[in-house]
């Protein structure tokens, strides 16, 4: 399943809720304000690295760029996708769960 998260993990618990309920083998895509969680050296980095042992985490490139966050600041292992990649993820997965 594809899980999308569009809220900052520093303001809302959407990402926590997602990580708690996403099964191993999930694809998790951070979009909109959710992209700020993908940066190295934050208070939530260890949660992401732990999740990536069993699931994949993606981040939407255009939303990173809008917030002045460069790809070299991402937590290792997080993959950047563009809108086409977002569509591919939605098509590859049987369902999409949007954590708002």
């Amino acid at each position: 399943m594809l899980h999308t998260v569009n809220k900052s993990p520093f303001e809302r618990n959407s990402l926590d809720a997602c990580l708690g309920l996403a099964k191993a083998g999930s694809a998790i895509l951070l979009i909109e304000d959710g992209v700020v969680g993908a940066i190295k050296g934050t208070t939530i980095e260890s949660k992401l690295t732990e999740t990536m042992q069993s699931s994949k985490i993606y981040v939407l490139g255009p939303d990173l760029a809008a917030r002045g966050l460069s790809e070299d600041k991402l937590v290792d292992g997080i993959q950047v996708v563009d809108y086409g990649g977002f569509v591919d993820l939605a098509a590859e997965n049987t369902a999409v769960q949007s954590w708002l």
């Binding site: 255009p62 760029a65 809008a66 917030r67 002045g68």
Partner: peptide, 9 residues
């Protein structure tokens, strides 16, 4: 933050 680029959103 510096370097904000919104052309793609």
């Amino acid at each position: 933050t510096k370097g904000q680029s919104t052309s793609d959103i």
